[in-house]
């Protein structure tokens, strides 16, 4: 890990351990820094703790019962476990495996749902601006600009997922967390989302959990490999895929297991 340390970082994970039901450690003593304006991929076999690690970055993991967390994660210099979840989740947005737009809200209201649900008042012009730029950012504007006030259930899966990314972008976050965002989508929709993520990293830092190694190879700058809750290796993606230091990583990359 030489070059990776020289890049400016945005999130610092320090000795993070997360346990379910007292003894079952899902994440074991992980330390790493997430780099600014980069796509960081988290890879590993099922149950390796990658989703828990991702969710810990905006404290969504606290929804699970009987969870205990030690160590810390800092956003710039602020420990996220000392921040209010409202403030934290405005700065670190999240996109889920399956597109989950709010079925009772229009496309327009879905984009500004974060403001609406938190009761943050906006002027009409501000609202319009946020909706337009967010939808343009996810290249959905041209497809929906004439039906902004309709409910979004006629959108395709890929469009819905882009709407969900727009919803996360509307808060102008620093970091966007994506939990296997394309696993429910077809290859064309997947390609669109991947292109989108590469565009978005200019202004945002992105952390991506993926099952799909070729996706990680295609779009990520840095990659983590996790196994049994431990962070085995974290380096630039090209190094991970061409010259991994650990044999466990090598085995996973070459498809010998996982």
């Amino acid at each position: 890990m030489n070059d990776i340390n020289t890049q400016p970082s945005i999130l610092t994970i320090e000795n993070l351990s997360i346990a379910y039901d007292k003894d079952k450690l899902a994440v074991k003593n992980v330390s790493a820094t997430i780099k600014k304006n980069a796509i960081t991929a988290i890879m590993g076999p099922s149950g390796c703790g990658k989703t828990t690690l991702l969710r810990a970055m905006n404290r969504m993991h606290e929804l699970y019962p009987n969870i205990s967390t030690t160590g810390q994660i800092r956003l710039y210099d602020e420990n996220i476990y000392d921040m209010s979840t409202i403030k934290l989740r405005r700065k670190i947005g999240m996109v889920f495996q399956r597109p989950n737009p709010f079925p009772t809200l229009s496309i327009y209201d879905n984009v500004i749902a974060g403001y609406k649900l938190n009761g943050i008042k906006l002027k009409r012009s501000e609202r319009d601006e946020i909706v337009e730029t967010s939808l343009k950012n996810v290249t959905l504007w041209d497809e929906v600009k004439n039906s902004l006030h309709k409910k979004g259930n006629f959108l395709s899966g890929g469009q819905q997922q882009r709407l969900c990314i727009a919803r996360a972008l509307a808060f102008k976050p620093d970091v966007i967390l994506l939990d296997e965002p394309t696993s429910a989508l077809d290859p064309i929709a997947t390609a669109k989302i991947e292109d989108l993520l590469i565009d978005l990293k200019e202004n945002y830092s992105i952390v991506l959990v993926t099952h799909n190694m070729s996706q990680a190879a295609r779009i990520s700058d840095n990659a983590m490999y996790m196994y049994m809750g431990e962070l085995i290796e974290y380096d630039e993606t090209t190094k991970i895929f061409t010259n991994p230091k650990e044999t466990s990583t090598q085995n996973y990359i070459t498809g010998r297991f996982g």
Partner: peptide
């Protein structure tokens, strides 16, 4: 997933119940 979507936007729990 709908509940998660609202919580991930920082919505306090009672508002998740009332508004989602």
């Amino acid at each position: 997933t709908l509940k998660e979507a609202a919580i991930a936007l920082g919505t306090p729990y009672y508002k998740v119940v009332m508004r989602v």
